[in-house]
């Protein structure tokens, strides 16, 4: 398979990348890991005149930096780095798990967190986990920087709040107080190289180990036009004692919130049913790692 012809530019800094994007509109495409962009270009779905590589912006920084309760994740970190990052594995295990669920080792060595989010696929494996941590993304352009909560970032299949002249420069998480645990489950036919039929991430924060739920977050993949927060399900859990029946009720609520479609991978009905299963399992696992339950 061949790539169409384009001009190649390599940005040395975020500011330079922004300058390259400014005014270029859809004629320019950002190249990070390339696992999505190059495939779409080979298939003729995209034909940018200019490809701006931002790989050099990564330049030796750690994938994740922690400042008090704030985690800042470099969006140019590869899925391999995210999956292995000790800070994430400790504090936000489901984010690492989501990264690990992407494609295969060969893809994870190229694909970046920023690419996974910016491509805004409903099936993006890192999106539901990050949604459960109320993550936000920092977007930069020549006009300045802004921060957008991730739950406002996704606007439709392949569409996001990211403007054509903007660069995703950071993913930020403010870790909540209390005892948190998280989990991510992805359902596919195969154990690798899969696009999720459905996925679910959960985060539960208890007031103390064995205590009541301060806050719960549930997010779903591949069952709506965007990675979706299941807010009604979340609200069932807040302030309650996390009993098994309650988790099941929340899972059922999440299934009602899903807006799945039929496609070649599964029917809408099956997807909805799987949301209940995956959410229940994710909640149980999150609760266990938060130090709750039995």
């Amino acid at each position: 398979m061949r790539l169409p012809m384009f001009e190649f530019a390599e940005a040395e800094s975020a500011a330079e990348a922004c300058r390259m994007l400014a005014g270029a509109g859809p004629e320019a495409a950002l190249l990070a890991g390339g696992t999505d962009l190059l495939v779409r270009m080979k298939r003729g779905l995209l034909c940018p005149q200019r490809v701006v590589s931002i790989r050099r912006l990564r330049a030796g920084r750690p994938a994740v930096a922690r400042d008090g309760a704030r985690l800042t994740i470099d969006p140019l970190a590869t899925m391999t780095e995210i999956a292995a990052d000790p800070l994430l594995r400790e504090a936000c295990a489901n984010v690492a798990a989501g990264a690990r669920a992407v494609g295969s080792p060969l893809i994870r060595n190229l694909a970046t967190l920023g690419g996974n989010l910016a491509s805004a696929r409903p099936c993006a494996d890192t999106a539901p986990p990050l949604l459960t941590w109320d993550a936000s993304v920092r977007l930069e352009s020549t006009g300045g920087e802004r921060s957008v909560p991730l739950h406002d970032f996704f606007t439709g299949p392949g569409a996001s709040a990211l403007r054509l002249d903007e660069l995703l420069v950071a993913v930020e998480i403010e870790l909540p107080a209390g005892s948190s645990g998280s989990a991510f489950f992805k359902l596919g036919q195969r154990a690798a190289l899969e696009i999720a039929i459905a996925s679910a991430a959960a985060r539960i924060t208890l007031d103390r180990p064995g205590g009541i739920v301060l806050e719960a977050r549930i997010a779903l993949g591949s069952v709506a036009p965007v990675p979706l927060r299941a807010r009604a399900a979340e609200s069932l859990l807040a302030g309650r004692e996390p009993r098994e029946e309650l988790l099941a009720a929340a899972a059922a609520a999440a299934a009602r919130e899903a807006r799945p479609i039929d496609d070649l991978r599964a029917s809408a009905a099956y997807r909805r049913e799987m949301v209940a299963v995956l959410v229940r399992r994710a909640l149980a696992a999150a609760l266990a790692s938060a130090g709750g339950g039995q």
Partner: peptide, 9 residues
């Protein structure tokens, strides 16, 4: 999307 088994399957 045409799926043959991987080493993990």
């Amino acid at each position: 999307d045409y799926k043959i088994p991987t080493a993990l399957d």
